[in-house]
Simulated assay, not measured.
Amino acid sequence: MEDTKTASILLLGDPGCGKSTLLSRLSQGQHAPKGSAPLPKLHDLDQPFIFDISMYNRPYRFEFYDTSSPENYTLLQPDFVILCFDVTDRRSLINVPQVWRKDVTRNYKKDGDDPPLMMLGLKRDARVEEEGVIYPQEGYRIAQEMRCDRYAECSAVTGELVSEVFEDIARTAAKTKTDAGGLTQGGCMVM
């Protein structure tokens, strides 16, 4: 059996944007009932949140770190960074390029380059059609402007698109362990 490849994944975003809820949903596994049972509470001291899976006929370990204060994680050199925002909170979207993207460039460069980036809209189930609502097209446009490799949205509370987002995260994180790396050729991909 081949050695397990380990990839560290850092979730950055404003407090309350849904990062911990997403990890809680993922911790219940793929076959957990969606939306019916309360999600378990995760604690910062339990980090990293570890997911062992098999892909491409090889075992992988994904270590997720969840933070809204990168100064506590500047020693971490993540293989993949996910910039999270709440689709119902315009301030959290504004902070992605103004705060979190800049923190990636300042703190997490590897060999002179930023790690692969994904922009992830959370709380998709709470989006209400009204003035000022953040539509996926706007999030995708901002992800492209920041040169993110991926863009996706999901709802951890209902489970909507969580499996698909996790698969996309896993594929990208696994690619960071290859010679080619996890950076997308040709621009931002929508999941």
Rank of each mutant, 00 (worst) to 15 (best):
D149W: 00
Q98V: 09
P70H: 09
A37E: 11
L122H: 00
D86W: 07
S8W: 09
E145P: 07
A143T: 03
I9H: 00
C188M: 03
R61H: 08
Q77W: 07
R106Q: 13
D179N: 10
Q30R: 11
K175L: 15
L76P: 02
T105G: 13
A170Y: 05
Q185K: 13
K110M: 06
Q98N: 12
T184Y: 10
R150S: 08
P70K: 05
P78T: 03
Y151W: 07
T178C: 04
L39W: 01
L93D: 00
L183I: 12
K175R: 14
E71Q: 14
S69L: 15
E164D: 15
L10M: 08
D46E: 13
D66F: 02
R101L: 15
L39M: 09
A180S: 08
K34I: 09
V162Q: 00
K177C: 10
L117Y: 02
C154L: 06
D14T: 12
L26G: 02
L12R: 03
I82C: 02
P33H: 04
M55C: 11
D79R: 04
G18T: 06
E138T: 14
P59F: 07
F85T: 02
I9G: 00
T178W: 06
L117S: 04
C17R: 00
E167V: 11
G18Y: 06
S20T: 13
Y56R: 09
T67A: 08
I142W: 01
L122A: 05
Y56L: 10
N57L: 13
L120Y: 02
D52P: 06
Q137A: 15
L22W: 00
D111H: 12
G121L: 04
K34A: 10
F85W: 07
N57P: 02
H31S: 14
P115G: 07
A32T: 04
R147Y: 14
A156L: 02
P115K: 05
W100E: 03
V157G: 04
K110T: 08
N95R: 09
G121D: 01
I53M: 08
V104D: 00
E71F: 15
I50L: 12
R91A: 15
H43T: 06
S36V: 14
S8M: 10
A143H: 00
K110I: 10
V157Y: 09
D44M: 14
N95D: 11
F166G: 03
H31Q: 13
